[in-house]
Design a protein around this nucleic acid. Structure first.
Lengths: 239, 239
DNA sequence: ATCCTAACCCTTGCATACTAGTCGGTCAAC
DNA sequence: GTTGACCGACTAGTATGCAAGGGTTAGGAT
C-alpha cells in the first residue's frame, strides 16, 4: 500500500508518554539527536517519516520542527524540505558573544548584588561541583566532566533567579556542545578549565564584579578557542 | 448556523498577502496588537475568533500563538484558553538584565574590537539619529522620539553584524515598550536620554570599552527606573 | 436555601485530507 | 548530443473534523 518499503518503521521508535504534549516531547528527542550528532548537519528531516517513527500525525512533528528552527537547530525551506543546520564560524562566534555577555553579567551580578550569605551559598555549591570535576578529570571521564561543566554554569545562572537567562545560556551552550562533540581534545584541557572555574568562584567570593567578569571572559574565550580547528577537520558540516 | 452572533466578523479584519506564510503574518499582527495595548494583559485570545477575523483556519493562528508564547507575549493553557501575558516585576527586571548584558557587551565590542574606520561609521550613524531625536524632542513628538530610540539601539547592535543579538535586544525591548506605553511621562525625559546617548557614542569614539559599557549601563538602568511607578497605577495588568 | 451531580459548551491537542510549490527523471524535438 | 516540456513523487502550508478535558450552569435531592 505504501510506496515506501517502510523498512525502518521501528528503527528508533521512541515511546511518547501520555501526560505531556506530544509536540514538546518530540522537540526534545530531535534536539538531543541533533546535539548528539545522530542527525548530521545538512541532513534532511522528513516530517512524515518522523511522524511514522513516533506514531503520531504530522502536526505535532511540524510544531516541534518550528520550535527547533527558532533556536537555529534546523532550517525549514518552504516546499523544499527541513534540514539540520550546518555549522558556520559566524554563528559560533555569535553564540560565544551572546553567552559571554550573559555569563559575564551573571557573575558580575552575583559578586555585588547579593548579600554575603547568598554569595557563600554560591561558593559552596560551585566548590562542590569543582571537586566532582577533579574526580572526573582524574578518572578521565570526559562525559561526566562535561555534564559537571554544564552544571557549573547553570548553577551560577540559577542563583540569579532569572529563569530565562539560564535557559538562554543553556541554548547557546548547546550549539557549542554540538560542534565540540566532533572533537575529543577535551581531555587535555581539564587542568586549565578547572583552574579557570576556581578563579571565577574566587572572584565572586571576594565580591569583585570586575575580577569575576574578567575571569569568566577569559574562561569562555579559551573554551571556544578549542573549536577553531574543527572546520578544517570536518568541512562537510560547515557552510 | 454559527452559535456566535458573529458581531465583529469584520471589526479588525486584516488583509493577508499571499506571498508569505499566513502564520508568520498573523504572528506579526498579534504581536503589534499586544505591544500597542490593543490586546490587554490578561485578556483571552480565541483561536477560532482570530481565524475568522483573518479569514483562515485555526492552524496558522495556532502556530502564531505558539510563537508568541515562546517570546512570552501570551500564555496558552491546555483545554482552558490562551491569554495575553500580564506584566510582572520579575519579568521586567529579567528583561532589563538580559538587555543590559547584551547592550553593554555590544558597545564594549564596538569600542575595542573594530578598526577606526568602522568606529567612525558607528559614530556618524548614531550622531545622525541623535540629531533627529533632538528635533523630535523639540517638537515634543514622543512617538518619533521612541522610534528613533529603537533605531539608535538597533543601529549599535547592527554594527556587530550579529543578527541574533540585534533581534534578542529588540525582543527584550519590546517587553519594556509594552509596559511603557501605559505611561507617558516620557516627554519629561528627553534631555536625560539624549545626553546619555551622547555619552555612549563619545565613549565608543574614544575607544574605551569600560566607559562605553558604563555609559550604556547607566542609560538602561535609568530608562527602566521610569517603569517602577507603573504597577501602582495599573495593578490590573500586573500579577 | 444549599449542596451535589450531570449535561453542555468551550477550550486546546491531534489526525487526516487537500493544495500548491519544487525537484528529478523521461522523452520528444531540434 | 543538447535542450526543454512534461509528469510523477516528493515537500511544506493550510483546512477541517474529532477527541479529551476543564468551567459553568441548570436541575434535582436533601
Amino acid at each position: 500500500m505504501a510506496k515506501q518499503p517502510v523498512i525502518s518503521m521501528r528503527t528508533d521508535a521512541k515511546e511518547l508518554s501520555f501526560d505531556r504534549p506530544a509536540a514538546s516531547q518530540i522537540f526534545g528527542f530531535i534536539r538531543d539527536a541533533i546535539i548528539g550528532m545522530e542527525l548530521l548537519p545538512g541532513q534532511m528531516i522528513s516530517e512524515t517519516a518522523l511522524a511514522q517513527q513516533f506514531g503520531v500525525s504530522r502536526t505535532p512533528v511540524r510544531e516541534a520542527l518550528i520550535q527547533l528552527s527558532n533556536i537555529g537547530f534546523v532550517e525549514v525551506l518552504p516546499q523544499r524540505g527541513t534540514y539540520v543546520s550546518k555549522f558556520s564560524m559566524d554563528k559560533i562566534l555569535e553564540a560565544r558573544f551572546i553567552r559571554e555577555a550573559l555569563e559575564v553579567a551573571v557573575v558580575g551580578h552575583l559578586a555585588i548584588n547579593t548579600d554575603e550569605v547568598t554569595r557563600l551559598e554560591v561558593v559552596a555549591a560551585c566548590d562542590k561541583i569543582i571537586a566532582d570535576q577533579k574526580v572526573a578529570a582524574a578518572d578521565d571521564d570526559a562525559l561526566a566532566f562535561q555534564n559537571l561543566d554544564d552544571n557549573f554554569h547553570q548553577t551560577l545562572a540559577g542563583f540569579t533567579h532569572y529563569a530565562r537567562v539560564a535557559s538562554l545560556i543553556e541554548a547557546e551552550k548547546a550549539h557549542m556542545d554540538r560542534v565540540r562533540s566532533l572533537s575529543l581534545h577535551v581531555s587535555g584541557q581539564y587542568k586549565r578549565i578547572l583552574s579557570q572555574h576556581a578563579s571565577i568562584i574566587k572572584a565572586i567570593k571576594s565580591g569583585s564584579a570586575e575580577k569575576a567578569a574578567a575571569a569568566m571572559s577569559v574562561h569562555l574565550k579559551d573554551v571556544y578557542n578549542i573549536l577553531e580547528v574543527i572546520p578544517q577537520e570536518h568541512p562537510e558540516y560547515f557552510e
